[in-house]
């Protein structure tokens, strides 16, 4: 059999997809929840970076995974809070403010990394910790499936929980209802007494919360160190994944899975004789194509709705 096909069909490839998908999924949930409130958070790149850094630093200095987790999550939430303060209180454009925050994250992490280790590249001199891998009893001994599903970092399973949590928050809680209301029509929401800015603040902080886990996984699971700009565009791919997934739980999950698969594929291709540059661009190109298809379809849907509304209107007029 063709060696490429063979490696793609192997169980290890299935495992790699989930591994690659994990940070994307967390960040994509973060983007989705902020978009549902009508304030899209494109600072996931920076949020993940700060959380990844804080996690490594705290775990290295306290030797406590729990503290590292808490600090990393707090840092992510803080990023969301800063963005919401600048956007909601100080009326900054949310896109520009988020771009500035990404820049801030990129600078401050290297700045502090240098102060902490004397190195600007990575934290390899620090003894930071890793989140544990989980080998699921019984399932791990099932042949192919076991290899794919079992033995992942706990954060990967956390990502699945995060999707469920995202679903529950959005559709089963009053906050979720308000988030959706605010996102669909802020004026209507305001007229029934919802504090629009407060709901958006919560949504942005929640997006920071989810993004933080993606960052923590990167530096304490995916690899075991922090490196400058280690998010490497994942925060941006997450935006594409969230867009593609229609900002809904299942869609976001499937889109992240797709991007995970394409990225994993790029890694596999690279081991063959094809120029790595041409392989590396595949996921980004795929994102553009997927985004275009999605947007075109959404536009068609809008047109159809307008047409239907027009028809209903004419029927009413004639009767």
């Amino acid at each position: 059999m063709n060696p490429l096909l063979q490696s793609i069909l192997s169980a290890e490839f299935g495992f790699a997809i989930f591994r690659v998908m994990t940070p994307l999924l967390f960040a994509a949930i973060g983007v989705s929840i902020s978009h549902l409130a009508g304030t899209i958070n494109i600072s996931m790149e920076g949020t993940m970076l700060v959380s990844a850094f804080v996690g490594v630093l705290v775990s290295a200095f306290t030797n406590s995974l729990i503290l590292a987790l808490l600090a990393g999550v707090a840092a992510g939430v803080a990023m969301g809070a800063i963005l919401s303060y600048f956007h909601l209180r100080l009326k900054a454009d949310i896109i520009l403010a988020a771009i500035a925050l990404n820049m801030f994250a990129s600078g401050i992490t290297v700045f502090l990394l240098f102060l902490a280790t004397g190195d600007k590249g990575s934290s390899s001199s620090l003894k930071s910790m890793l989140f544990p891998e989980v080998h699921i009893p019984l399932i791990k001994s099932i042949p192919v499936l076991g290899t794919i599903i079992s033995g992942h970092n706990i954060m990967t399973y956390g990502a699945f929980l995060a999707i469920i949590l995202f679903y529950i928050i959005t559709f089963k809680t009053p906050l979720g209802l308000r988030i959706r209301a605010v996102g669909q029509n802020p004026h209507a929401a305001e007229s029934v007494g919802i504090n629009v800015n407060r709901i958006r603040m919560w949504a942005l902080m929640l997006s920071g919360f989810f993004g933080a886990f993606g960052g923590l996984y990167l530096s304490m699971g995916y690899v075991s160190w922090f490196a400058r700009d280690m998010t490497a565009g994942r925060g941006w791919i997450a935006i594409a994944a969230a867009t593609l997934g229609g900002y809904m739980p299942l869609g976001t999950f499937l889109a992240s899975l797709l991007f995970g698969a394409v990225n994993a594929l790029a890694i596999y291709f690279a081991s063959l004789q094809i120029p790595s540059e041409l392989i590396a661009l595949i996921p980004y190109l795929a994102t553009v194509i997927a985004l275009t298809i999605y947007s075109a379809q959404a536009q068609k849907k809008r047109h159809r709705k307008v047409e239907e509304a027009k028809q209903v209107g004419t029927i009413k007029e004639t009767t």
């Binding site: 594409a240 980004y284 999605y294 947007s295 075109a296």
Partner: peptide
């Protein structure tokens, strides 16, 4: 893409940055 299908120019231009980068790198290297 934006003008015709309302595809967010923010996301697409960002993704195309990466594509351009790898294409340029390939061309030169």
């Amino acid at each position: 893409l934006k003008a015709k299908w309302k595809a967010s120019e923010l996301v697409s231009s960002l993704m195309l940055n990466y594509v351009a980068y790898f294409l340029g790198l390939y061309l030169i290297n």
